[in-house]
C-alpha cells in the first residue's frame, strides 16, 4: 500500500518541458483591449441612431418601442458589465513567473445572490413584455373595426373587403383565377362563388387600403403555404397559415403608402412578395370604397 503510493509520487509524469507562451503580458493587454473595444463598438452600434426600428405608423408601436428600449438598456448593461469584467480578468490575471493562482473553488453565496438578481430582472422583463403582448393580441378588435381579409399565395397578397353588406361571400379553391386579379374580377384570385349573393359586393384588391385612425381587424388566410403578414411600419408580424383563419387588429395613425412583406419562407420568389398598405384619410377611404364597390 505504502509502496504503491510512493511509486505513484515518484513516477508522476515529469512536467514536460513547457515553453511558456510567448509575451504573456502583451497578449493579456491586447486581448483585454480587444474585448473592451469590441464591447464598446458593439454597444455603440446598437445605440447609434442610424440603426433604429423603422418609422412606425401604428398606434401600438410606442408600447413596443418602450419595451424594446428597456430591454436594450438591461441587456446593454449586462453585456457591458460582462465584457468589462472579462477584459479586467484578462488584463489583471496573466501568468507570472513563480506565482500561483488563488485556489478558490467558488462562493455559493455570491452565486445564489447573483442568480437571484438575474432571475428577478429576467422575470420582470418577461412580465412587462407580456403586458404589451396581452394588449395587442389577447383582446378582440374593438367593435366597429374595419373588417378586411388578407389572403396570401405564392408570391402575392390579396385583400378582400366585405362591401356594403358587411359580410364576406363564399369562396371555392376550384374557382381561383390568379390570372385576372383586377379589382372587380369574378371569380378572381380568391375564387368568389358567383352563386353567393353575399359575395356580389366583395372587393378584392392587391393593395391593402385602410382608413387612418380607425381600428382595422385583419383576418389572415393562405391559399398554399405558410406566409407571414409583415409590415415594418406597423411593428407587426403574423403568420398566415393555410387551413387557419388568424385575426389581428391594429390602428394606423398616419396616411401614406407602406410596404407589406412576407416574413415566412414561402418558396422561390419569397423575396419578391410585396404589397402596399395604403392608409387614407377616412373620407378618401369611403370614396375609394364607393368607387370600387359598385360592381
Amino acid at each position: 500500500m505504502k509502496i504503491c503510493e510512493l511509486k505513484l509520487v515518484i513516477h508522476s509524469p515529469l512536467p514536460t518541458p513547457h515553453s511558456p507562451p510567448p509575451l504573456p503580458t502583451l497578449m493579456s493587454r491586447l486581448l483585454a483591449i480587444a474585448i473592451w473595444l469590441t464591447a464598446i463598438v458593439t454597444a455603440g452600434l446598437f445605440a447609434w441612431s442610424k440603426w433604429r426600428l423603422p418609422e412606425s405608423v401604428a398606434a401600438h408601436s410606442a408600447m413596443i418601442d418602450h419595451q424594446f428600449k428597456i430591454t436594450l438598456a438591461v441587456i446593454g448593461v449586462g453585456f457591458l458589465l460582462a465584457h468589462a469584467a472579462l477584459g479586467y480578468v484578462v488584463w489583471r490575471y496573466r501568468a507570472k513567473d513563480g506565482e500561483r493562482a488563488s485556489p478558490s473553488q467558488g462562493n455559493a453565496r455570491v452565486e445564489f445572490i447573483l442568480a437571484g438578481c438575474v432571475a428577478v430582472v429576467f422575470i420582470a422583463l418577461a412580465i412587462t413584455g407580456q403586458r404589451v403582448w396581452a394588449r395587442l393580441r389577447l383582446n378582440q378588435a374593438p367593435p366597429g373595426a374595419v373588417q378586411i381579409e388578407a389572403v396570401a399565395q405564392q408570391f402575392v397578397w390579396n385583400f378582400r373587403y366585405p362591401g356594403p353588406d358587411g359580410k364576406f361571400g363564399r369562396t371555392d379553391p376550384r374557382l381561383y383565377r390568379d390570372a385576372d386579379n383586377s379589382i372587380g374580377a369574378r371569380p378572381g384570385p380568391l375564387g368568389l362563388d358567383p352563386n353567393d349573393p353575399l359575395g356580389k359586393d366583395d372587393i378584392v384588391t392587391p393593395t391593402l387600403v385602410a382608413p387612418a385612425n380607425r381600428p382595422i381587424s385583419l383576418s389572415l388566410l393562405s391559399k398554399d403555404v405558410i406566409h407571414d403578414f409583415y409590415v415594418p411600419a406597423l411593428r407587426m408580424k403574423q403568420d398566415a397559415v393555410p387551413g387557419m383563419k388568424i385575426n389581428i387588429h391594429f390602428t394606423a395613425t398616419r396616411e401614406g403608402r407602406y410596404e407589406i412583406a412576407c416574413a415566412e419562407l414561402c418558396g422561390q420568389f419569397h423575396h419578391q412578395m410585396r404589397a402596399y398598405l395604403d392608409v387614407k384619410s377616412p373620407r378618401d377611404y369611403e370614396e375609394w370604397l364607393k368607387k370600387n364597390g359598385k360592381q
Binding site: M1, I3, C4, E5, K7, S12
Partner: peptide, 13 residues
C-alpha cells in the same frame, strides 16, 4: 507511470 503495475493488486482503499 501513474498506473499501477499488474503486480500490485491491492487497491488503495
Amino acid at each position: 507511470a501513474t498506473t499501477l503495475t499488474p503486480k500490485q493488486t491491492d487497491a488503495p482503499s
